[in-house]
Amino acid sequence: MKIVACIKQTFDTEAKIVVGGDGQISDEGVNLIVNPYDEYAVEEAIRTKEKDGGEVVVVTVGGDKAQEALRYCLAMGADRAVLINDPALAGADSRAVSVALAKLLSEKEAGFDIIFTGKESVDDGVGQVPSRLAEKLDLAQANVVTAFELSDGKATATREIDGGSETLELVLPALISAQKGLNEVRYPSLPGIMKAKRKPLEVLALGDLGLSVDDVASKVELVAAELPPARKAGQRLTGEVDEVVAKLVQLLQDEAKVI
């Protein structure tokens, strides 16, 4: 079985966001990590392989630094990695990323049975790539998945919907986007880190995929980024419990008008 995990390298969730003079978000001095939801995807891919055999290929679109993220996944236990790295993809939107991934997965890396992705990345929080990729590759998809099972070539997934959950049966090949809770992500072991150094990591430019710069034009353009207006500390209510509570209720009714 060929199992693909799509990942993205993102800012650490603890990172403080700074907007530079050019209206763009600065990545200077920021710790880069594998997007947390993508870690669930990689973990599920490795577990599926451990159970049913096959190979795990981890793929990403990114710059030179993204190799570190791929190596991390190889250290977790993925077998090989592909990085699509091209200057034309710097600042690519979800459309451009899914076009590049779809091309890779329909040609050079065709023949997969399952694709795992995270449900979204924690940086831009868009979550479009899983659905766009499923459409481009004409796959069954289950989004925001918290449980996954594969038996007799049939995939079953439980996914979050608003106010509850839903269980789906999917025809393979299928795309599964992972939500927190799908599994417990392993730490790469030290021997795993040592082995990762020798695992294949292929770097491809757009030309290697047979894509032109126009093919991956972004359709969404960032005009400017700004920091949200800072919330200010409001009133501190002090006194005996009964007084404080009465005061709070009165403020919520009369001043804030929210109850």
């Binding site: 459309r95 979550g127 899983p130 659905s131 766009r132 989004n143 359709k219």
Partner: peptide, 23 residues
Amino acid sequence: HSAVGKELAPRTAAKVDCGLVSD
């Protein structure tokens, strides 16, 4: 930007090949 919209909008956008701004 509900569970349905988060999934349906990008899938449709890919089919139509248009840009989508989420959330």
